[in-house]
Amino acid sequence: MENILKIEHVKKYYGESSVITKALNGINFSIEKGEFVAIMGSSGSGKTTLLNCISTIGTVTSGTVFINDFDITKMNENELSDFRRTELGFIFQDFNLLDTLTIEENIALSSIINHQNPNEIEKRIQEIAIQLGIEGILKKFPYEVSGGQKQRCACARALIQSPKLILADEPTGALDSKSSRMLLETMIKMNQGLKATILMVTHDAFSASFVSRILFLKDGKIFNEIRKGEKTRKEFFEEILDVLNLLGGDVDLVK
């Protein structure tokens, strides 16, 4: 299988010379095409820092990040812009939808920037909207729909360019448990039905139990890795809890 994401010796240090925080302290891993991977860890373990480095929002102190065989640590600003637009999709905890645009326009924004054919854009939006169950709210504005719907709209926006990799930062963080479950099922659909490769950061064991592989971070290093394999979701959930107990720290165990 081809590697979509390959991370080699990534380090990220914060602070001055006297007080250095080693947020990431030499991380190596890779994600294959079609995988749904979660990164877990307690607060301060470096999850978000890692995601920022992959998503080109932040920079690494040393090491290399390959996405689809491109080394993003060597790209300039404009190249990164294009790269983000064509190769990456984002889902945030607090949605980051633009409230001056309708749901449909929010989804279309990056396609329009790509100068795509309006008819094709519309067709694609319809396709994705039906898959994600938001076809009825396309003409509404973000403030007129629920949090769960907003997050599914964000998923649609992430999917529209058929990116190589979708990055999700605590996507269920602002949702109630019912909406969370619906969203995760949507993401499974994205992963299996639409063949999207997804990397999700979460500290919630329930959310993590939906994925196929989990990396555990502790003190800026990969501490453990487990795979779902043939296990049921319940068995996998139990296994996650075991690792989290081993890991210690303030992790939400119960949901």
Partner: peptide, 13 residues
Amino acid sequence: KEFGTYLILGIKK
């Protein structure tokens, strides 16, 4: 935040 979102969607600065 709005501008940040534009940037992350790949709109150039």
